[in-house]
Amino acid sequence: MRKPIIAVDMDDTICQLVKRAIYHNNKSFPTHLLHYEDMVDWDTTHLRHPDSTHEVFYGRPGLFEELELYDEYVVEEMRKLNDAYDLLIVTAAEPKTVLEKWKWLQMHMPFIKLEQFITCKRKNLLTFDLLIDDGPHNLIPAFEGGRKVICIPHPWNRQQREQYGFPQMSSWKGAKLYIDEMLLPLGLHI
């Protein structure tokens, strides 16, 4: 019998990307300060200084290596998931950020092996039993396709959380038990 496949996003799911990008934006453009609560959409052009393009906001060299863990529980819970399930890290990445993301994973979660690390923007093309993500563009196709999802709540997914009623996880504390309970009715519990 195969282990259930759990696909886990990186940015703003197991690490804090937007908060760090805001920090650097606010240092570089103090006349156009951003706040986490203002990030209500993926298109943030209306919030930034004209010189703070998508490339500038997310393209700072080394940004992805300096990200903080999502919370104090994420490493241990990811270790438990890795032991119990077929765990995949599925993250959108620009070619220049792939190595940074891999280095971050190895620094914080060295139990994740290279064959578990997939860079992909169109996650709905992959096979998984459960997706843990913050991106509505990933959660909606999986949910509508009949797959289990867990939404990591952020201001940019509030509308979709309300519309679709996604199961949510605002902390990684107890994540393994929560996931076990979600997969039990499918006969996928480990």
Rank of each mutant, 00 (worst) to 15 (best):
V98E: 11
V98M: 04
L99P: 03
E100G: 07
E100P: 08
E100S: 09
E100L: 11
K101S: 01
K101V: 03
K101F: 01
W102P: 01
W104N: 04
W104L: 09
W104S: 07
L105T: 06
L105V: 05
Q106W: 01
Q106D: 00
M107E: 11
M107Q: 10
H108A: 05
P110E: 04
F111H: 03
F111V: 06
I112E: 08
I112C: 03
K113A: 13
K113H: 14
L114C: 02
Q116P: 01
Q116S: 13
F117S: 10
C120R: 12
C120K: 15
K121T: 14
K123V: 01
K123P: 01
N124V: 11
L125W: 02
L125I: 13
L125Y: 08
L126A: 02
L126H: 12
L126M: 13
T127V: 12
D129F: 00
L130F: 03
L131G: 10
L131Q: 11
I132Q: 07
D133P: 01
D133K: 08
D134S: 14
D134L: 11
D134V: 09
G135N: 13
P136L: 09
P136C: 10
N138M: 02
L139D: 00
I140G: 04
I140C: 09
I140Q: 06
I140R: 13
I140Y: 05
A142F: 02
F143D: 12
F143Q: 02
F143N: 11
G145P: 13
G145V: 05
G146I: 00
G146Y: 00
R147M: 10
R147C: 05
K148D: 12
K148Q: 15
I150M: 06
I150A: 09
I150C: 13
I152R: 10
